[in-house]
Structure formats: C-alpha cells, structure tokens
Design a protein around this nucleic acid. Structure first.
Lengths: 338, 338
DNA sequence: CGCTGGCACTCGCAAGGGAAGAGTGCCAGG
DNA sequence: CCTGGCACTCTTCCCTTGCGAGTGCCAGCG
C-alpha cells in the first residue's frame, strides 16, 4: 500500500507531465508543489512508485513519466471530475439549441466536444435498437416496389427499398400501414418482432408474400447493427499529440476510420458514469497510446447511444471527463425536447 | 516558348519527383529517361525551366523540384488521364454494387476513392436543389404537430418537424398529402415553389394557416443550402504527405473539418471533365501545398454533386484523375439504377 | 548554333567529439 | 524517516570536419 504522500507525489507527477509534456524530475516537483519535503525524499518515493509500476523513466538520466497504471490510479483515486463553469454550461446549451435536426444535433455535439476538450470527438447516433418506433411509413413507388420509412423517437429516419414478390395494391398497402403502426408505434424496437409475427395471417393469400417481405425488411432494419453510425471531428487536434507523432498519429487515424473499432470502443463503456480507458486497456492496438473517455447519453433516463473523445494518454482527465459528462447531459436534454 | 525537349525534361522531372519524393538532378534524369542528350545539356534546360518558373531548387546544391506552375503545365499539356485497367473497373463496380442505401453508396465511394488514390477522399451527397422529388410524406405526430418527410430520386431523405398554428385533422392531412404529391412528384426542386403557391386556396379557411406553414417548411428544406452534406475518408493517407508533415498536415486537417471550405473547393470545378486545382490555386490557405482533383457525378447526364480527392501537390496526377473519373462514372450508374 | 565533357565551386548533410546539464541513486548524519 | 551532499550516468547540444551531390560555366567540337 502506498503512503498518502506517495500518492500525492504521483498526482503531482501526472499533473506536471500533462502540463509540460516533459518528464518531471524530483527537483522541479518540490518547486512547483508544496509537498513539504526535500527532493531527496521525493526521489525515494519515486523509486518506490517506479517499483510498483506507476511511473517510468524514458532514459536513465531523465525525469519520470506516468505509466498507464499510474494514470489509472490517478483517474480512479486521485482526481475528481472537474465540473464545467457557469459560462461554459451556458455556451454548451446555446450551441446545441440551434440544431434543426438529428444530423445537426450530432454534428454540433461533435464540434462542441472537440473544441471543449481539444481532442478528437466521437458521437454515436442514437441507436436504433434501444429506441422506440414513432412511425412506419410505406410508399408505393411502383406496382411491385415499396419504400419503407422508419422514424424513431429520437428523430432518426431510416429508409429501405422493398422489391415485392407480387404487385401490391394501394388498398392493401394502406391496410398494412395502418395495422403495422397500430401495433408497433411507441413500442421498443426489441419488442417489434413479436408484435408483428402473426401479421401476415390477416391478409389475403396473394398478399402474404409481399407482407412477409416488407416485414422481414423492417426487422432487418431494426437489427442491422452495422447501421450504427457515428460522426467524428476534431482530428486536427491529433497534431497536438506529441513530438514523435508521425508514428503515433497514423494508427490512430486508421482506427478512427474503422467504424467498427470505434463502436466497440464506445461500447465498452458499461458504467452509468463516465468511463475512461487508458492506453493498453484499449483492445485495438493502434490506440495503445491513447485514452478514450466515453459516456452514454439519451433522451430519457436510459442511454440510447454513446459519445466520447479520443486523446493522448497524457491528457487532462478531470477536465475532459467534466466536458464529456456535461455535453452528454445537454445533448440528452435536447433530444428529449425534440 | 519551350522546346519540345525541355517539355520532356519537365515531364521527366515531375514523374521522377512524384516517384522518389526527392529533388531530381541532371545526372539521374539522363540515367532514368532516355532523353538522348547529356547531363550538361539537361542542366541548361533546367536552368531555362527554372527561369520560366516551372521548377525550383530547395537549396543551391540540390536537384530540382516542380513548382505549382510546373505541375500545371504537366497536367495541362504533358500528361493524359490514365484509364483504369479491366480488373480495377470490375473491382470498383463490385464494391459499389453492394450498397443498400444512399448513405452506404456515399460511404463506399469514399472508401473506394481513398483506397484507389491513397489520398483523402471527399464525396458530396447528391444535392437537393438539382434533384427531383420522388415523394413527400406527412405524418401526424400530435394534433398540431406534423412530420414532413421528403424523398428524392437519388434516395436522399430529409425530414422536418412542423408545428402547426392550429390542430389539423387526419382527413385534411391526407388531402394535403395527396394534392401535394400529385403536383410535385417527379418534378425538379427548383420548380416546386411555383407548383404549390396556390395550394392553400384549395383548403378550408381554418386549415390554411397550417397548409401554409407546412409548405413553407417544405420550401425551406428545398433551398437549404447549408444542408449540403459531405463525407470524407482516408485521412490516414495524410501521413504519407512528406517529411516536414507535422506543419503541413495540421492546416489540411483543419480545412477538412470545415465543410464550407470543402464544398467551395469541390464547387469550383466547372468543367464537365476532371478538374485539378494545384497548390496555391486553392483559395484556402491551409491547402496551399495540396492539390484537389474533383469531378461532378450524377444519375443522369447531369451532375448532381461532386466528388474528389485531396493530396499533396506531388501526386500521381494521371492515375488520380483516372481513378476519380472512373469512380464518378460508376457511382452515377449505381444512382441511376436505384 | 547547339551539344558535350571537364572542372571548380557551393552547400547541405552525416559523423565524430567534447562539454554541459539534468537527474538519479546512495550514503552518512540529524 | 527525512535531508544534504556527492559521484555517476546519460542525453542533448553544438561545433567541426569531410564527403558527395549537384550546379554553372567554359572551351571545344560537329
């Protein structure tokens, strides 16, 4: 177990390193923080912290930098979440309120997060599977061609083209539309399959094929998980990564292009609160020198999607966590209103 | 006027520099290209080319590199567009054919372009203003709340919420929907305002306010030009920019985040064919060391949107132009089919 | 008149060699 | 258990030197 002072030393190291981006030595530490002890004592503490794996030195004659384990301890025990100031809150609210549609909400959120944290922001569109159905619309485009439009309570719209096995009359279409909506409107996506399974029985034999086709397209749309879209922004902030950054930035950019990777990344957040994954805790190897701060957001009490930022492990954790949490909260409000 | 041989020297310099990324000297040139003259002669030609501003030398004792003006001459006079090979064409087609919806088409196009050119790809969504209306749908969400869904022939879907001044019955809504569609379906967006201007007259007095509101929302959606969305990808290719790239890459990333800038960039393409803007020809100053290769694409004969790539001025122009042109062509086909 | 080989010159770049400085670990004393 | 002192280890920076690539110019040749 580490003594209280050693924890303070670790905290000081993290703070200084985050600020200066340079390995921090014992002398500088005692000068900048009033620890009440001499550099020599700090050196002993540092040696102990290094033995435990919380810090490391890049070269023999350099100062110490925190390891992933060190950051982890810092985040878990030593740092709180820095709340946003009043003006910041108001700015967030103002900025988000101007949004005209879901795309716009997401776009604004990304920009906002990127600006606040000065890092790369990732925002997932409200997930289909956790939303409820607001309305299903069917449009006849040709005798045997129907367009299916699905509208969710979060304002998201999905559309699919359906090629019917047989021509489908306007009357039947209207009938299907009405029956479908009366069953699924307002229901959760996960409940929809059960709710519609006996629907074809209500139709004439000749229409059943088409009804079945339409329904299966609907179900496909509902479960289609690769339809989990997201938006990223603030990639220009990657240039603040560090000195050796050509090597670092490349895999990060590549990872950011892989939606699958990103979704998994955000998806790992399980806590109701802000989740932080540091360095090697990220499964994807291109992101081994980055940390991901993420949180769920949603219109009601429950999270329908995630958002977060990706930055260097050397980041201002309290500030970033504060910003992420605040933005998620306000986005949730905006979604609830619309 | 430059002699034929000097033009060949310029072409050789561009080709070599693009290949090696290093300033090219007179000796290397004569070795790699059979110009039929000695290095000394080439030196004279180089001096002349430098006087004319087509090439420059980074340091006194280095080889020459092409200037923007040099690239311009190369693109205009010295290089053709390299057509895609058969297998490449087939790969493009296969890759694009799997798309399920417009978003997917655009996403695939971006990935494809980025991979083919190994550069940053930018694809604009088919513009609203140049498309035609496939269908307008109206959904009653609450007594005085209507959702307007607009579907275009390119498969794009836009939706807006409309708060009505007065409650609006289902019957009136159905009436409006029918009248609206019979007038505008299949028509070009630009014609819509004229087509609907007398529509409120057909309704009862009490509904006119609502009809007017719905219509004006529709018109807003049609003209809303900042709704010009686009998708970018392949940013990881930025790391191949060059050695001094931390300085170069930053402004480029920043420019790429500004949709406005990008749209303007693509928009500048006026030619029916592939447009190339080299270095300082780009208005935006962050893109002074990049070239933009863009072209319009569309489902029919007419272009409804643009796509292109952004890369270092030192790029393989013939290959890039070929890829951009081919992709645009196939995307157009895909859009026409859907 | 244009091309060619030769030659002197310029300069950037890489390698080598100190010198300086930062930071550490350890030890003896309070 | 903390502190000041001290020897030691590296990295970093700077300066010098040598090399090589590439140029520009010139005299000669077809």
């Amino acid at each position: 177990m580490l003594s209280e002072r050693r924890l303070q030393v670790l905290r000081a190291i993290v703070q200084d390193y985050v600020g200066t981006e340079e390995p921090v030595g014992s002398k500088a530490l005692t000068e900048r923080h009033s620890l009440g002890v001499s550099p020599a004592t700090v050196r002993n503490d540092m040696a102990a912290l290094e033995d435990e794996g919380y810090i490391a030195q890049p070269h023999t004659s350099a100062g110490r930098i925190p390891t992933d384990k060190g950051y982890r301890l810092f985040v878990d025990k030593l740092a709180g979440v820095k709340p946003m100031t009043g003006p910041e809150r108001r700015a967030i609210q103002n900025f988000l309120e101007g949004a005209v549609d879901l795309d716009d909400v997401v776009a604004r959120t990304v920009r906002l997060l990127a600006q606040l944290t000065r890092q790369v922001a990732v925002v997932q569109y409200p997930s289909l599977t956790r939303s409820t159905v607001r309305h299903v619309e069917l449009l006849s485009l040709a005798p045997a061609r129907v367009m299916l439009v699905l509208i969710t309570d979060t304002g998201r719209v999905e559309q699919r083209m359906v090629d019917c096995p047989a021509p489908f009359g306007e009357a039947s279409l209207a009938d299907l539309r009405a029956r479908l909506n009366s069953r699924v409107a307002g229901r959760r996506f996960t409940d929809v399959p059960k709710l519609v399974e006996d629907l074809p029985d209500a139709f004439e034999h000749e229409d059943r094929g088409t009804v079945t086709t339409v329904l299966s397209t609907l179900l496909e749309t509902l479960v289609e998980e690769n339809e989990e879209r997201l938006m990223i922004g603030g990639t220009a902030n990657l240039t603040r990564f560090g000195h050796d950054f050509p090597l670092t930035i490349r895999p990060v950019l590549e990872a950011l292009e892989e939606q699958v990777v990103l979704l998994k990344l955000l998806g790992e957040a399980k806590d109701p609160g802000v989740t932080v994954r540091i360095g090697h805790e990220n499964a994807h190897e291109g992101l081994n020198s980055t940390s991901v701060v993420s949180v769920g957001y949603g219109s009601g009490g429950e999270a329908v999607a995630k958002l977060g930022v990706v930055g260097p492990t050397r980041m201002d954790y309290p500030g970033t966590m504060g910003a992420v949490r605040a933005v998620a909260r306000y986005v949730g409000q905006i979604l609830a209103e619309s």
